[in-house]
Design a protein around this nucleic acid. Structure first.
Lengths: 220, 220
DNA sequence: TTGTCATCTGTCATGGACTGACATAAATTA
DNA sequence: TAATTTATGTCAGTCCATGACAGATGACAA
């Protein structure tokens, strides 16, 4: 890696660290891009060459984790039931997150605390998850050989499990957890959701209209 | 109602209609507040006296519906199981939405189309649902006599059902539904989620730590 | 080492979403 | 009609974000 690339990487990290330090002291909203740039002795215009927006910086570290889930699901054996495969994939994701975070626990928790403290940030974070959800849905549909546009079940399953995860993060945030507590809470909620769904999910069937079997319904 | 109040109401509606007409033609992002204000012959500053933000205007009509859910849940008989009560409350919400929308179907669908076309808008919409989710969670916890801070089950249940609704709206948006199709899709997904949860949900129990029973876990 | 090239950065100008302050115009009420 | 309340317009300013251009700096070959 050349000097140029090293410098860029350095500036990037410096911006992130300076930003989160300011976020923790002043709050996310109250911190301006100018302040962050000034703290790193860089022009505000340069800030936007490293990050598309202030939100991008704040949510930067969540991106890598989302990719982990899709690869984890793809690695599950073909015969595994959808719910089991998805739940396992998410558990692996959690383990990966734990392992990565352990490298620099302080920074990880700092980031989580900032995000958890800002509903708007939290919301955008899960909104960006939509892309990942689509990939997971496509993978589940592929495994079952169904059309993801016609069969809402894979999509629903992904949405349900994802929301369980979300609740896990929320609970952990409320309880002001350390890394262990965070992982515990998220895992627990995932297990809870899986336990609730396991008895019913396997029997779910669709009507001929491509909608739910439990009720004759509009073709949409 | 005095002249003053009538005028305000009129201006408010005019802003909404002008805005959505512009949104449909130019897109939400490409439409500026100045354009909306100009279309109604009002200063841009006045726009912000009617709506806190451009997003507020775009999501305005969703607010009234969210209130319906909480009142619908509160009206369910005390003995009803949590899942059944919540599902029924949401079904009543859907019926109410259908009835209200029937008054002015065109405007309703216009609004939905704009929101569905903008991921950011859609995300913010469901993010704002968080407030409603809290109320629903509190009501479910009250019914069960549990502490919402310690027992994550009501919260999880609300999150699961809400996400089913979200998927229903998404499916309807993709299929470019009319009002009937929209209601059908959302109802179907709600039924599907209820069917998936009914067998397992009643048996869900918690461990002594306030976490999930299926696994000994961290106190958080 | 030197000169060329690609790329990073700062500066400047601009636009769009908001907000506070203040004056004016309009409706309400007495 | 006079006094009061309230809505609106104007103005100035902040913050986020982006395009354009020029200068600085690292990469690389001769």
């Amino acid at each position: 890696m050349g000097l140029r690339e090293r410098k860029k990487h350095q500036t990037r990290l410096a911006l992130i660290d300076a930003a989160f330090d300011l976020f923790l002291v002043q709050g996310y909203e109250a911190t301006t891009v100018d302040q962050i740039a000034a703290a790193v002795d860089v022009s505000p215009r340069t800030f936007f060459r490293y990050f598309g927006s202030k939100e991008d910086l704040a949510l930067d570290f969540t991106v890598e984790y989302e990719e982990l889930v899709t690869t984890a699901l793809a690695a599950r054996p073909a015969g595994e039931a959808p719910l089991a495969a998805l739940a396992t994939a998410f558990r692996e994701f959690i383990h990966q997150m734990e392992a990565n975070a352990a490298d620099d626990t302080e920074r990880f928790l700092k980031h989580r605390r900032v995000i958890d403290a800002n509903p708007a940030l939290l919301a955008t974070g899960f909104a960006r998850m939509a892309e990942t959800e689509k990939k997971l849905t496509a993978e589940l549909a592929r495994r079952q050989g169904t059309d993801p546009a016609a069969d809402p079940r894979p999509r629903l399953l992904v949405a349900l499990i994802t929301s369980a995860l979300r609740v896990g993060f929320e609970c952990a945030a409320e309880r002001d957890c350390q890394l262990v507590g965070l992982v515990g809470n998220v895992t627990d909620l995932l297990n809870l959701a899986e336990a609730a769904l396991t008895p019913g999910w396997g029997q779910l069937s669709l009507g001929s209209s491509g909608q739910v079997a439990t009720k004759a319904s509009s073709p949409g």
